[in-house]
Structure formats: C-alpha cells, structure tokens
Amino acid sequence: MASRIEILNDGGFRSDGRKQYELRDISFDLSPQSSADGSASVSHGLTQVVVSVFGPREAKMRRETIHDRANINVEVNVAPFSAGERRRRGRGDKRILEFGSIIKSTFEPVIQTSLYPRSQIDIYVQILQQDGGVLQACVNATTLALASAGIPLLDFVCAVTGGVHSTSPLLDLTTLEENDVPHVTVAVMPRTGKVTLVTMETRLHVDRFEEIFRLACEAGKVLHKEMRAAVRERTGVLVAAIGAAPRGTSAGMDAGDRDVVMDERIDDY
C-alpha cells in the first residue's frame, strides 16, 4: 500500500497536503515535568518527543566523572507504542545506543561543559510517537530542555531533515517519505551558522547533497525563530510568576534584550 502514495504529485503537493518547502506543524511545551531540572516536549507533526534534563549534578558513577568538564549522559527510550509496529526495545538495543550517541556528540560542542568540571548532565529522551523526523525532534527538544534547565549553551541547535524526490528537495519528512526518498538530517547552530550534526542512512547523490544541505540549514533558521519565541514566552511566564518583572508586555522585551546582549557577546568571541 505504501508504495501507492505519491510522494510529490504533479500539482506539487506532498502526500499530506504540504508543498516542498513547508515544515509540519510544530509545538513546544516547556512546562516542568516532575523533578527534572529542565524539560521540553516537542512535536513535529505527529512525531512527539519528551526530553528531561537533570544536572549539572554529581555523577552517580564515580568513574564517569571527567576532571575538567561535565560529562554528558544521554539515554533514549522508545515507547513500544510509538511506531507502527508494536515493539519493545531494550536499553541495549544498538539502534537506540547509536541514537543516544548521536545526540551526545551533537551537544558536546554546544554545552559549555568546562563550566562544570567533575559533574554530569543527564539527558533523558523519550520518543512517544514516530512519524518521521524522530532525530530532528530529539535534537530540538534537547536544545529546549537544556535551555529550560538553565545550562549555558553557545547557541540553539535546530535540526531539520531534508530529502530529495527525483530532483525536488523536500523538507521535514514523514515516515512515508522517509521510507521512500534518500534523506539527511542536519543540525545547525543558527547564529553562527555552524553545523553540529549531519547524518544519513540512505544513499544520496553527491550533486544533490549540497542543495539539500543548504536548504536544511535555512530551515534550521526558520525553526530557530519558533524556538526562541517559545523560550521567550516561557521565560515571560516564569518572570511574571516570580513577580519580579514589570507588568505587561515589557517582560517579553526584557528577555529579548538579554538575548541581544548574548548575541553581541558571541559576536565578540
């Protein structure tokens, strides 16, 4: 049946009614979850991921501590009901370990680990529903969770999947599309334009790669606006709750100013 669905029809529509460069509906929820220091729930279309961040805190295992920086520990859990086929994946599952290590290596250069020597930052990723672009959702959710935990980051990390159908590039693929077209996931730091992650598991023609890569980087910047707005809104809510900020819209302004300051500092760097 799957093969019966046209990836991109003659009218330029994809199977879910989007056009080539349209991303799916995204939603961010930064409200705290249980005892986590920071958490974020992100959904891209029907893909849904929750990330909780604990720390920086003392490592449970002494041998895992590193003397000059914090150790990042990523654990991924895929809910058995998340994918089409019900399947329980153990912790030792190679696929899941790989996933965790991809997320870890994506964030290692972004988190300012040297500020927290001999400590550990735990990132727990829960994949609740999969409909393509699981990795991008995990990366985006981790960024937001780290931010909400107050862990200093050099920049946002925004990930998008890009694919190519024949010669037409597509962005933000669903499971259906991922099964059919070669695709690449790119995580970009929008302010500097640096890329911390490029991964693909399918073959992609080298001539097409650059086009899609650039497109994914652009899309990362679009995502960044959304994510920054979400962080700003959350901060506004918190600030209002504390009551320390002036009333009304100025709370948002305040947070925005700080953001600008941070921008400048990074530019100096």
Partner: peptide, 15 residues
C-alpha cells in the same frame, strides 16, 4: 500483525 497507522493532512486555501 496489527500495525498502527498515523496520517495527518494539511488543509489549505491556496489550492
């Protein structure tokens, strides 16, 4: 086998 199928659709006004 029982398989869960997820589909979404984006409705638009510019068709």
């Amino acid at each position: 086998k029982v398989i869960k199928v997820l589909r979404e659709r984006y409705l638009r006004d510019d068709v």
